[in-house]
């Protein structure tokens, strides 16, 4: 078998893929899942955002402007923070600013490390490597962060009496919330660790499939994929721990009393 040019997908063929959405909508309708609106909006957003991204990427990947690349990266992180906000829905504790700063710094460091040191691109911000690496880090760690933060707030409310009991026995706020902190960080990290267990056996990652479909040597695609898997675990761990450390203090008052009202 020889490698041939990649087969194009026509507009009609693309629309044919909507059959999958129709089956999802049918399930939602039959079983009253109440997801029809989310599925419809999600589908429209997938089309709109990816086509837009395609045009933007074509421009950015051929750009030699450092500020444009960094600006796009900042926009991606900002969008991720708002998606986290949508999933967490917490009003008593101001957690968005520390989350944004931590995400920006940790994801930027990870993306620079991968593009400059591991891939060895020159300059280190070469958009062809820096933007996709950043995108994967942001997308993956954003989900982990949303899981961790949401769980931390929920558990802190549910276990308020236990936290207070520990405080009354001489614990500081870190000791009183240590179990909840660990549980929340672990909950965010487990999907990335599970992904390492199943990769190549249970599923073929999208990035690797995309590279192979686009005609890349599978051996090269595999090396890139390994870097991506390791990068995602590392960035998830660092960003989750850093964000949780910063927002945990905000959940306690000046007397280290829990601020979140019980549910």
């Amino acid at each position: 078998m020889t490698t041939s040019a990649i087969i194009d997908i026509s507009t009609g063929q693309l629309l044919l893929a909507l059959v999958f959405i129709l089956t999802a909508q049918l399930s939602s309708f039959v079983f009253r899942l109440g997801l029809h609106r989310d599925i419809a909006v999600g589908t429209l957003r997938t089309f709109a955002q990816l086509f837009l991204m395609g045009y933007v990427l074509t421009y950015i990947l051929h750009s030699d402007s450092f500020w444009l690349v960094v600006g796009v990266f900042a926009v991606m992180v900002t969008s991720a923070v708002f998606i986290v906000k949508g999933r967490v829905n917490e009003k008593q504790v101001p957690y968005l600013l520390p989350t944004f700063i931590t995400m920006l710094l940790s994801y930027f460091t990870t993306a620079v490390f991968v593009s400059a040191l591991i891939i060895g691109s020159a300059p280190w911000w070469e958009p062809r490597y820096f933007i996709p690496a950043g995108g994967m880090v942001i997308g993956n760690s954003m989900s982990a962060l949303a899981i961790s933060i949401e769980r931390f707030f929920r558990e802190l409310r549910q276990q308020r009496e236990t936290v207070e009991m520990k405080l009354c026995l001489g614990a500081d706020y870190r000791e009183a919330s240590a179990d909840i902190f660990r549980g929340a960080v672990k909950a965010g990290m487990i999907p990335s660790i599970n992904a390492m267990m199943g990769v190549g056996l249970v599923f073929i990652p999208g990035m690797m499939s995309g590279q192979i479909l686009a005609g890349a040597d599978p051996q090269v695609a595999i090396r890139y994929q390994i870097v991506v898997m390791l990068m995602l675990v590392g960035s998830t761990a660092v960003s989750s721990v850093a964000v949780m450390l910063l927002i945990r203090r905000r959940c306690f008052g000046s007397g280290e009393e829990p601020l979140l009202s019980p549910e």
Partner: peptide
């Protein structure tokens, strides 16, 4: 308000209505 909370709570101990 001027005492470290942990120091205060080890001297002035609060026992809640529902034991945990």
């Amino acid at each position: 308000s001027e005492m470290p909370p942990a120091t205060l709570r080890s001297r002035v101990a609060y026992v809640a209505q529902i034991p945990r």
